[in-house]
């Protein structure tokens, strides 16, 4: 990973996810910004696009599907990875059909997400 660091956005209103993921993902030198509010995150995205967006599917105000749609409308090349809770396979399927790069189900280890991110970055750089 001696190429340009990736810009990764993490969105989750449970805050625990962002809080734990941020340091874990930063370990490999990538730039990570965590958000608890969908709107704030989208506003930030409007300023400057990110390579990868990791978002929870179920959030109070805006759900992950909407985030996905709005991100992709702004930046086609951004890879959106959806975090799903337990037994939300249906929604995950919907997300994939709407262009999400992949999904990961809780509980997971940051290293599991790391693998998906690496796959995404491979596609970004190809």
């Amino acid at each position: 990973m001696n190429e340009q660091p990736l810009k990764i956005m993490v969105i989750d209103d449970e805050n625990i996810v962002g809080k734990r993921l941020k340091p874990a993902l930063e370990k490999t030198g990538d730039i990570v910004e965590a958000f608890e509010e969908g709107e704030t995150a989208l506003a930030r995205f409007a300023q400057e696009p990110f390579d990868i967006v990791v978002t929870d599917i179920r959030m109070e105000k805006i759900d992950g599907i909407e985030i996905l749609e709005r991100i992709l409308a702004k930046s086609q090349r951004t890879k959106v990875i959806i975090i799903t809770g337990y037994a939300t396979v249906e929604i995950a399927r919907e997300a994939l059909s709407k262009g999400a790069f992949d999904f990961i189900a809780k509980p997971f280890k940051p290293s599991d997400l790391r693998q998906i991110i690496e796959r995404a970055s491979k596609e970004l750089r190809s």
């Binding site: 449970e14 625990i16 996810v17 734990r20 993921l21 874990a24 809770g85 337990y86 037994a87 809780k106 509980p107 997971f108 280890k109 940051p110």
Partner: peptide, 16 residues
């Protein structure tokens, strides 16, 4: 394992 192993989980996991 989930508690000590750096896992990220949600409330639903614990409840089930």
């Amino acid at each position: 394992e989930k508690f000590t192993g750096e896992y990220i989980f949600d409330r639903h996991y614990v409840v089930s």
